[in-house]
Amino acid sequence: MKKISTELENTRKTFSFFSRLKRNSPVDNGLWNEIEEALIQADVGVTATSRIIEVLQAKSKELRLSTSESILDLLKEQLKNSLQKFNTELDSGGDPSVWVFVGVNGVGKTTSVAKVANWKSNENERVVLAAGDTFRAAASEQLEKWANSCGAELIKGAEGADPSSVIYDATEYAQAKNASLVLADTAGRLHTKSNLMQELEKIVRVANKGSGTVTEVLLVLDATVGQNGLQQAKSFAESVDLTGIILTKLDGSSKGGIIFAIAEELAIPIKLIGIGEGKEDLIPFDPEIFVEKILDFQEES
């Protein structure tokens, strides 16, 4: 898998305030206010920031920390811990496993399905793609191209067909062909439209009635929308049992702080992140590497 290098530079810049803090300044209200403001500006969000500050103050008091440098070191560890408390591994415990990709329009669902198919096919897994976005012909065409290029198989229905039946058929086909993984695309839907969200419930319910097991329901979010993505996640979580989040377009966003808001407010793990447009640019999320990359606390000259 590809490694992160400079793709998180935009997010790192939003956290660069911390590198400008004086290393030996005292721990006082001014410092706490500066840290709070910096986290909010980095798109961590007000609620998550308040929780982070509260825990940070309690721990710093317990450890009797007296300089800003020690506080920032503690902040880095706390942010790592807030992300590491979740299992970020993708669940392949079904026979076959069914991973359903959900989200609003334009976030990169179909592309994410295709990139995961490429990744898993390269690991010699037999993969079946389910073209569950039956309202957008281009989605099936896009998946078909990726299926052909990576050796996966595609099950699709007629335009406007019931997406639940397409995904069910794909699961049955995968079981018959001894494929281990079904990747199910779904149509983009506004989280404010109750009828579309109910359809999503049906898709997951019907998929579980077949030979396979839905082991992942992955919400695809566009990192560039920042805190708006948090509301999307809340709404989708009310309709289906989200098991993880794919955060796309992180390479072009300065709003990667949303990751901490999701962890603090929703307790949903980030499982994959998109760091580019290439077919290998969707990678497993590593909390340790992410925090180290964006929180460069080296003092600027």
Results as ranks from 00 to 15, higher is better:
Thr49Ile: 08
Leu72Thr: 13
Phe135Tyr: 12
Ala261Gln: 02
Ile53Gln: 07
Pro96Cys: 14
Thr186Pro: 02
Arg205Pro: 04
Ala187Thr: 07
Lys76Trp: 13
Ile283Gly: 00
Ser254Thr: 08
Glu89Ala: 15
Glu144Ala: 12
Ile52Met: 05
Asn24Lys: 12
Val217Thr: 04
Gly256Ile: 00
Ile167Asn: 04
Ala42Ser: 14
Leu74Ala: 09
Val217Arg: 01
Leu75Ala: 07
Val128Arg: 02
Met197Asp: 13
Lys76Gly: 11
Phe86Gln: 03
Leu154Gln: 01
Ile40His: 03
Glu141His: 13
Ala176Asn: 12
Gly106Ser: 11
Glu201Met: 10
Glu280Pro: 07
Ile258Met: 03
Glu277Thr: 08
Pro96Arg: 10
Gly278Leu: 11
Gln175Arg: 11
Arg136Ile: 15
Phe101Lys: 00
Lys85Ile: 12
Ser50Phe: 04
Asp251Ser: 07
Thr213Ile: 12
Thr110Gln: 03
Ser121Val: 07
Ala137Gln: 10
Cys150Asp: 04
Ser66Lys: 15
Arg20Leu: 14
Glu141Arg: 11
Glu265Gly: 03
Thr243Gln: 08
Gly226Phe: 00
Lys61Ile: 15
Ser97Trp: 05
Ser70His: 13
Glu125Arg: 15
Asn122Ala: 09
Glu292Trp: 11
Asn118Lys: 11
Leu218Phe: 03
Ile262Glu: 01
Phe135Pro: 03
Glu125Pro: 05
Cys150Leu: 09
Leu218Tyr: 02
Gly103Asn: 08
Ala237Lys: 04
Gly157Lys: 07
Ile283Asn: 01
Asp281Ile: 08
Ala170Tyr: 02
Leu221Cys: 05
Leu266Ser: 03
Lys255Thr: 02
Ser140Met: 06
Ser68Phe: 05
Phe17Ser: 06
Val240Cys: 05
Leu183Ile: 09
Ile289Arg: 06
Lys22Glu: 15
Ala137Tyr: 09
Leu230Cys: 06
Gly188His: 09
Leu72Gln: 14
Leu272Ser: 01
Ala130Pro: 03
Trp99Ile: 04
Lys249Thr: 01
Asp286Ser: 06
Pro284Ser: 12
Ala207Trp: 01
Lys249Val: 03
Asn105Cys: 14
Thr47Met: 10
Lys279Ala: 06
Pro163Met: 09
Ile52Leu: 08
Gln175Thr: 08
Asn10Arg: 10
Gln198Leu: 10
Ser254Met: 04
Ser68Thr: 14
Ala161Trp: 07
Asn195Glu: 13
Gln232Phe: 02
Leu79Met: 14
Lys145Phe: 08
Glu125Tyr: 14
Gln78His: 13
Ala223Gln: 02
Glu292Asn: 12
Leu31Asn: 05
Arg126Asn: 11
Leu75Met: 14
Val291Gly: 02
Met197Thr: 15
Gly106Trp: 07
